[in-house]
Design a protein around this nucleic acid. Sequence first.
DNA 1: CAGAAATGTCACATAATAGTGACATTTTTT
DNA 2: AAAAAATGTCACTATTATGTGACATTTCTG
Lengths: 185, 185
Amino acid sequence: MLVKTKDRIIEAAIEVFNQDFSAPLQKVADNAKVTRRTLHRYFKDRDELVGTCEREMERSCKKAMIAAIKSSDDSLVQLESMLNAGIDCGAKYSFFYKLHQREGHKHSSNNKDCADYDYIYGSFKKIIRDLQNKGVVDAKMTVEWIQNLHAGIINSTVNANEINKSNARDIRKFAWKSFINGISA
Amino acid sequence: MLVKTKDRIIEAAIEVFNQDFSAPLQKVADNAKVTRRTLHRYFKDRDELVGTCEREMERSCKKAMIAAIKSSDDSLVQLESMLNAGIDCGAKYSFFYKLHQREGHKHSSNNKDCADYDYIYGSFKKIIRDLQNKGVVDAKMTVEWIQNLHAGIINSTVNANEINKSNARDIRKFAWKSFINGISA
DNA sequence: CAGAAATGTCACATAATAGTGACATTTTTT
DNA sequence: AAAAAATGTCACTATTATGTGACATTTCTG
């Protein structure tokens, strides 16, 4: 058992649901190389699976992002680390971001998960503001746009990697260059 | 009848399917402000609706992109127009691009639609190469990455507009600035 | 306003997906 | 190798989504 079945199902589900949220569970099962019956042994129903995926994304993206934030005191380094963290999380991050942007998602800081999200994007805001004050980042751009671009570039990178895995390192360099130049003053 | 029902359904379907490809038709109907019964009067079944959406995206994105390409002889102007065209097409463009990237999609130039797609991205390549030769665009970046970034930024812009419709003009300016600076030499 | 066209309402049939129980088979652990 | 745990197979029910017919209601059109 190289990877625990339950975890494999969660990974598969995140991948599938990221592409097609209402996809049948059979697709998830296929993707995880288990039968639908086994899937249901680990997850009572669809809601439980989706919920677990959400928590896993929260946990893992939050962890990666917080590590990135704490990796340095230099906001520029922090920003690059946050981009890389998003890329490393791959589909997880895309889905994570999508979920928190979703119309139906009632965002409240009471919710523990949303509080984490708020912490991360609070830090992001602070970093951007700092870089704007230092004249590194264009002060005319809104933090909202930059945040959106950040997620968009992560998404582009994940897509690019899915298509062409060979030069993942180059793509990562391009991503950072495009991002930082794209928002520079 | 400000907008023809059939067109409204198509627009609604593109919006919904772009977000959630396997979403129930009820969602599309709701989004189009019609009943499911009416939807089925215009479209025999789901496949016919999806097919119509695809053709509509091809038609409309192709039209907008080709107009953008022909809008000028200056490659920089062409590139900006192509970005704007993508933004104007909104969800249509996101879905259009996604479909042509999809794993299952067997891309062949024999297919009329794919030929159009090839024409557009052939032109895109030419524009980028030209700008690289002129020293405007970073020659070390691959056209594939730039194309990917182009689609990603359009997507970010469409998302940003969905959340905050007020300052669409600003967002558009940000998008172009981020894109061109992001790939500049 | 009268007729026509479009849409809505409701009931229904069919198909796809979701979820579960019972038992066989495989894999892991001791 | 035996016991235990995990997974698969298959059959079945329940739920949800799809598609259609019949008829009422609304909206357009001359």
